[in-house]
């Protein structure tokens, strides 16, 4: 690596500055555990975990039945699952996210009301997005599963492994429900 930087220095001072900046920014982001694209944190699955056999999961019910998510491709499944997880977090936090907090702290008193409102609209969600989100979820599920969604329910559940290694749902807590009839 030092040979590479030395070679870069000899060939192009601009390239050397670019590589050095990239390396330092990546190290800083890694140590601060912050991601600012393209300075990523590469630490996948490195958090220590204890196998309790108990997992908190979201659930989606369409027309009263659980949606069969495991049978679709992972990226498509996650376009449904992860926004729901985030939606539940937003509901629990009353839509007060770190992004909104930073915006308020650094921008609210430094720009006009209309500009701040535009910025806020482009960067964060608020409580008025609640039903709009559920309507989006309905449209996307209808597209993927090719079915008509008349009733939609999302919530938290707890899944546990039994001794015989099968899985049981021990808790189901609805967070939002919408009827489209």
């Amino acid at each position: 690596m030092n040979f590479f930087l030395r070679s870069a220095w000899r060939q192009s001072k601009t390239a050397f500055v670019f590589f050095t900046f990239f390396i330092l920014a990546t190290i800083w982001c890694s140590l601060s555990k912050i991601e600012i694209t393209p300075f990523f944190l590469w630490a996948h699955y490195s958090d220590r975990q204890s196998p309790t056999g108990k997992f908190d999961r979201i659930y989606v019910k369409v027309n009263g039945e659980n949606l069969d998510l495991p049978n679709i491709s992972r990226p498509t499944r996650e376009m449904i699952q992860i926004p729901i997880m985030y939606f539940i977090q937003l509901e629990e936090k009353s839509y007060q996210t770190s992004t909104r907090h930073i915006l308020k702290k650094h921008l609210k008193n430094k720009c006009s009301k209309s500009l701040y409102s535009t910025i806020e609209k482009r960067l964060v969600n608020d409580v008025s997005d609640r039903d709009v989100f559920l309507n989006w979820l309905k449209r996307y599920i209808e597209r993927i599963f090719e079915l008509e969604v008349r009733e939609l329910e999302v919530g938290n559940s707890v899944l546990v492994f039994r001794n015989n290694r099968t899985v049981e749902k021990i808790l189901e807590k609805p967070v939002a429900k919408l009827n489209f009839k």
């Binding site: 912050i34 991601e35 600012i36 694209t37 393209p38 376009m79 926004p83 985030y86 939606f87 937003l90 996210t97 770190s98 992004t99 930073i102 960067l123 964060v124 969600n125 997005d129 709009v132 989100f133 309507n135 989006w136 449209r139 996307y140 597209r143």
Partner: peptide, 16 residues
């Protein structure tokens, strides 16, 4: 994507 509603940017300034 059927006009998605939620967006999560966190503190990634490039996303901002």
């Amino acid at each position: 994507l059927e006009s998605p509603v939620l967006l999560r940017l966190d503190l990634d300034l490039t996303y901002w």
